[in-house]
């Protein structure tokens, strides 16, 4: 056996390489199983990051389908309600560079809440059927109303309304929600001071 190998260097090399390959392959395979990092399926994690407005602006019927689609390789910049923050978070998760928002799907706007002008409502239930999160209360031929806390501001109810009595009102900040803004970027601040645009620079 040994002599066979020493005589046939080609064969020896082949056997050695195959042997090593099998050994390390086995080791790697074992390690992959043994030290597997358990984590949520990627769709779950993506869904966690999406804003759950269920607005469908991305072209999918809700956030989870879009998460599925991203997992299958779709672009990550189709979510206007989430805006750049969501895109950054997804890019971070997937370890890709963050693109800017795809304007074709809409612009990032301030958060709104649907409001039904109740005296104009005819009780057609069309908005109730359109609401993806069941945030509209009412019954046929009876007045409807929006549960403001549950409304995601997706504005899917506005279009089906036959009498146009639904408004999307921006959420106004009250004194309790106010927070200090981040200080201005020091570089901008100095640049204006230096260029003399700031009056009391001295």
């Amino acid at each position: 056996m040994i002599t066979l190998l020493t005589d046939n260097t080609m064969l020896a090399a082949l056997i050695a390489l195959v042997g090593l390959g099998t050994l390390f392959g086995g080791l790697l395979g074992y390690a992959a199983e043994r030290f597997k990092v358990g984590s949520d399926p990627i769709v779950q994690q993506l869904d966690e990051l999406l804003p759950q407005t269920q607005c469908g602006q991305c072209g999918f019927p809700g956030c989870r389908p879009y998460a599925q689609s991203i997992a299958d390789g779709d672009a990550i910049n189709k979510c206007p309600p989430g805006g750049q923050a969501t895109i950054n978070a997804i890019a971070n998760l997937l370890d890709v560079t963050a693109p800017s928002l795809d304007e074709a799907h809409g612009e990032e706007e301030i958060r709104t809440v649907a409001y039904i002008r109740e005296d104009e409502c005819i009780g057609c239930t069309k908005c109730i059927q359109a609401c993806p999160v069941d945030a509209i209360l009412g019954a046929a031929k009876l007045m409807h109303t929006v549960i403001a806390e549950e409304c995601t501001g997706c504005d899917l109810c506005v279009e089906p309304c036959p009498v146009d009595c639904i408004d999307m009102l921006p959420i106004v900040e009250n004194i309790g929600q106010w927070q200090w803004p981040a200080p201005p970027n020091p570089i901008d601040l100095i640049a204006t001071t230096a260029s003399g645009m700031h009056e009391d620079a001295a």
Binding site: D134, A135, A182
Partner: peptide
């Protein structure tokens, strides 16, 4: 001011996450 602003942002992010979770649940239901 940086800390105050960040604290506010973190609290807002937490609230947003909680509301998103509720919205997801209602949507799935």
């Amino acid at each position: 001011q940086y800390y105050r602003s960040s604290k506010g942002d973190i609290v807002n992010a937490r609230t947003a996450k909680a509301t998103a979770a509720v919205a997801r649940e209602r949507f799935e239901f």
